[in-house]
Amino acid sequence: MTRRKTPSGPQLDTEQLLHAYRTMRTIRAFETRVGQEFEKGTIPGFTHLYSAQEAIATAVCMNLLDSDYIGSTHRGHGHSIAKGCDVKGMLAEIMGKATGLCKGKGGSMHVADLSKGMLGANGIVGGSAPLCVGAGLSAKTRGTRGVAVSFIGDGGSNEGVVFESMNLAVVLKLPVLFMYENNGYGEATGFSYAVGSGDISGRAGAFGMPAEKVDGKDFFAVYKAVKVAVERARDGGGPSAIEAMTTRFGGHFVGDPQLYRAKGEVEQLRREMDCITEFVDRVLKDKSVTRKALQQIDTEVDALIEEAVEEALAAPYPAPEELFTDVYKTY
């Protein structure tokens, strides 16, 4: 296939644009279905959906290789899909099935696939920051030119360990990107209340690294900013921080009545802050891709999700003896 440069972004050809679309659509369809399945009772525990933030995970991970690392959050399905985790394995995991990526022992908040450089969703807010500093240290020590990206929410940005981690990454000049996703809410508390300075990237910059804010619903803006940061990290230029301004179409968790949101707020955001709509409008307008190609992807994604759900529902739960395995390597 010939790679044709498009006006949508100097680095992206049609194939890459379609990949971006497929990834975002897969995340949206996955999350929508997970929400429905959760309400039906086929998914145990609690689960946090990524809908509205798809452009961020997708743009970040399109700048990464399998040998690069990401550390995720409790809202981690989108990051996992974008980093290449198997959708069927993920759905089975979230349903607690033996065929899950982590044999059903991790669940929604601990989906991981080390073979894809996905170091796990994390049930501890801000939890991925020090782990990714370590992964960056590992890449630097082993001379792999690898990069580690820590996804952190606006809520997580207030955790002390995140501050410590940013300082440590700067001191050791590690190939780490602190990727803040500011969706405006930490659980049921607004960002404008909880982040005292009102400026996460400014705070990160004060640690001594390049930091910038980007429009999180603009795939191309995120892609461009991340590309610069990742290349800098790969070339030994040390850590960076990016704060992507975004929103959350759902609640903190599925089932959250969202009483803290204004009436009509979500509907308005869905109209004005949908990163997928914005992406589609742009690539169709500049004719980088055809509507038919996008529709083809829609069909394929919907079929994949349907198949993944059916297979996960039919899959067996872990055998009772699995309770006792994988605590230690040898017992």
Binding site: V133, A135, T141, V161, N167
Partner: peptide
């Protein structure tokens, strides 16, 4: 917290 966590992350990724 940062460097013990970093040690854990480094251990997870080949050191």
């Amino acid at each position: 917290a940062a460097y013990i966590g970093a040690a854990a992350g480094a251990a997870l990724t080949g050191l």
